[in-house]
Simulated scan of single mutants.
Amino acid sequence: MIIRLEQDSPEWLEYRKTKFNASEAGDVMGVGFNKPYQLAQIKYQGKQVYQNEAMRQGKEYEGQIRDYVNQKYNLSLSPVVICSDRDSRFSASLDGYDIFTDAFCEIKFSRNEYEYFKEHGKPSEKYFWQIQHQFYVSEAKKCLYAVGFIGDMFEIEVEVIEVERDDKAIKKLIKAWNEFEATYKNNDLDNEWLELSDELVEAMERKRELEDKIEQLKARVLEKAGEVEMKAYGLTIYKTERKPSYDYKSYCEHSGAIIPDEYLKAGSVSWGVRVC
């Protein structure tokens, strides 16, 4: 169903707040510009929408790229907002739709995406999910994916391919959206929760980066030590040997043995925090 709204208008922005939008599909799948919890802050807590320079330039050059696609493929693509007839929670703002051929286009203007496109001949993962979301909402037959960038001659270079509908991916995407809604929609959390989640996620990301660096340095140290125990400049190189031990679980499964209840250890309850 076509929604009579002008993209980027105040009415359009208000409309998007109540919908699962195609541009958010990469986020909900964990590969977009925002983590799923950050998307939840945008949709349900009123946090400002992330926009980078490539997105701003994309709006500036979108019309030129759409004209190029129309001319090359003899189409009449024009921007349109569509709401899914199957599930009204889902919406998509198409960069161009041609009603006569039932085709739509998705336009990007990004150096990174252009280089990825040239190397792999397909959209990067976050835009793949966006396109599959658009397929689901529009039920269109065809998608043309156009990526542009200013080349060395200071002219727009455009590459275009056709992207196919992937029904398995769409089912996975719908499941992710349902889980997202169930997890975040009715969580009435205060600002301290938002600050804690931001700080904890950032700290965990720094921790992972440090852990990777530490493992790289340890590997190099062990390589230089050459399997020799030693101490040098605050580092101790040591060997750890583990004695053979029995795998009781495998033994019981293999022999059919059942451990009597009197050997059962008491259970316990603990709490933890997982960053997702």
Rank of each mutant, 00 (worst) to 15 (best):
H254P: 00
K142R: 09
V275A: 14
I214C: 02
I174E: 10
E215A: 12
L264N: 07
Y61E: 09
K19I: 04
Y233M: 08
K218N: 13
R220C: 01
D167R: 11
N21Q: 04
Q48F: 06
Q71S: 15
S9H: 11
F154R: 12
V158Y: 02
I259Q: 02
A169C: 13
R274T: 08
K141S: 12
Y246L: 15
E159A: 02
G30N: 06
I258Y: 00
S270T: 10
E53A: 13
P10D: 05
F104N: 06
D95R: 11
K142D: 02
M204Q: 10
K118G: 05
K185W: 03
S93V: 03
H120F: 15
V137C: 09
K142A: 00
F154G: 10
S270Q: 08
V228H: 04
E106Q: 10
K72T: 13
E157H: 01
S110C: 11
E162Q: 14
E14W: 01
C276A: 11
E24P: 00
R165T: 00
K265E: 13
E229P: 03
E229A: 01
K17M: 07
I150Y: 09
R16C: 15
G121S: 09
A225L: 03
P79H: 14
F109D: 07
R242D: 11
A169R: 08
F154A: 10
K118F: 04
S88M: 00
G151A: 02
K168D: 15
L200M: 14
Q48M: 12
G63P: 07
R206D: 07
S268W: 09
G46P: 14
Q132S: 09
D166A: 08
S245P: 05
E139R: 12
R56V: 07
E155P: 01
V201S: 15
E159S: 04
E215D: 15
G32H: 05
Y251P: 00
G58H: 10
S245W: 11
D102V: 00
I258T: 11
I150Q: 10
Y248S: 09
K171M: 04
R89H: 11
V163L: 06
Y44E: 13
N178H: 05
S23N: 15
V275S: 07
W129Q: 02
Y50V: 07
A266H: 01
I107H: 01
G96W: 03
K265T: 13
A40V: 11
K207F: 11
K72Q: 13
A40Q: 07
S78F: 10
G226L: 00
E62V: 10
P36N: 14
A25C: 09
E159F: 03
P36K: 07
M1V: 15
F90D: 05
M1H: 12
K118H: 11
E192H: 05
E119P: 03
Q7H: 06
D8K: 11
R206P: 03
